[in-house]
Amino acid sequence: MTAMRKIVAAVVREKGAAFQIEDATIGEPRPGEVLVRIVAVGVCHTDIIVRDQYYPVPLPGVLGHEGSGIVEAVGPGVAAVEPGDHVVLTFQSCGHCGPCESGHPAHCADFFAQNFGGGRKDGSTATCDGHGHALHDHFFGQSSFGSYAMAHERNVVKVPKDAPLELLGPLGCGIQTGAGAVLRAMKVPAGARFAVFGSGAVGLSAVMAARIAGATTIIAVDVTQSRLDLALTLGATHAINSREADPVARIREITGGGADFTLESSGRPEVLRQAIDALGIQGTCGIVGAPKLGTEASFDVNMVMIPGKRIMGIVEGDAVPKVFIPQLVDLYMQGRFPFDKLVKFYDFDEINRAVADSESGITIKPILRLPG
């Protein structure tokens, strides 16, 4: 019988319910798996929308998918990491479909099952509650809202031990998504005119990445002035409060006809329309904001077709995490990617306050510190 390790975890038991800190247990790693002692974990928009069942992830379960920690144990066959390594946990992918094999694991053909299935592919889970009942886990291949997480060799990324481990978890999803959308997916070049709709953690990461890429016009759009003010310190050349001005008209004015690239990070269909309309000739709009499944949006077909505009879906920045996350760590350590300015730390048992602060806009990127 597999030995079970005692842990604490934040459990969601039903749609829209508060996270409950519970005693639980976790098993030992199977072949290819990596048991990680979680040091800290970011709170992401996707955790919140899954709690609210925008995506049909089975409950009760343990969410969390921006974990950072220390490898505790590895299963048979694992060669990429060993106990004691510092790691960031990221999304899971199958590793053998066409997109994975061609360097696009974020568009894995099995992405939904791998990340939202609620357990291993065989239906088993690694985690049980205090009464011995199975809890759905393996959320994004990790379920890191707990003191330990069961990940896989494919979705653990080794990072330098001199980097601040408790800060690094959000590189596994939100920060990677915004920065990767600019640097990996859309490949924004030097001299480009770029605008981001939504200045949360994803949008502001895109602003910093656009500055690294050498974009000469970087426009942040949001309804919260404090976030726009921060965007200007992180590299934005212009900020538009869309409660006070028409962002499409202002972007066309600032750019002299429209942006080369826009990024929609709010998940609101009406904002996506603005991001498409704000493009210039042959401009590209990237979509990273996640609404409820089944959400539809509209646009003027001729005003996309005739100017040759492109609309691009982007997941996780289209990044290869084992390559891209260490690059982001290097950029941070060099002072060129100061994503720490987006962060506020909370104790693990303050998870519901952290979520509420994220939903209200008080905190851009909450990070929970695990005890011990």
Rank of each mutant, 00 (worst) to 15 (best):
E359W: 03
V36I: 14
M312Q: 14
G280H: 07
L279M: 10
R154D: 03
G174P: 00
T127Y: 00
Q225L: 04
A151H: 05
T284V: 14
V50R: 04
V36K: 06
P164G: 12
S360F: 11
L232H: 03
A249R: 07
H96P: 06
A278Q: 10
Q225I: 06
T125A: 02
G95V: 04
F345M: 13
S298L: 12
S199G: 08
I218S: 11
P164S: 14
S199A: 15
D162H: 13
E22G: 01
T125G: 02
S360H: 07
A213F: 03
A151R: 03
I218E: 12
K121A: 13
E264N: 05
T233R: 11
A245I: 03
E350M: 09
V39N: 04
P307A: 08
G317V: 12
V320Y: 11
G267E: 05
P160K: 08
F348H: 00
P56V: 12
M150S: 00
P247M: 02
V34Y: 10
C44N: 08
V248S: 10
E66L: 06
G61Q: 08
G42W: 13
G132N: 08
K322M: 09
N352Y: 08
V88D: 09
H45K: 09
V355S: 01
K6W: 08
V248D: 13
P269K: 08
V71E: 12
L331C: 03
S226H: 13
G335Y: 04
H86D: 05
V88T: 12
T233P: 00
D85F: 04
E296N: 08
V182E: 00
V57W: 07
E316Y: 08
I367G: 02
A106M: 14
N155H: 04
Y54F: 15
A9F: 13
T216R: 15
G69Y: 07
V78G: 03
H107I: 15
Q274V: 01
L165C: 13
A201N: 06
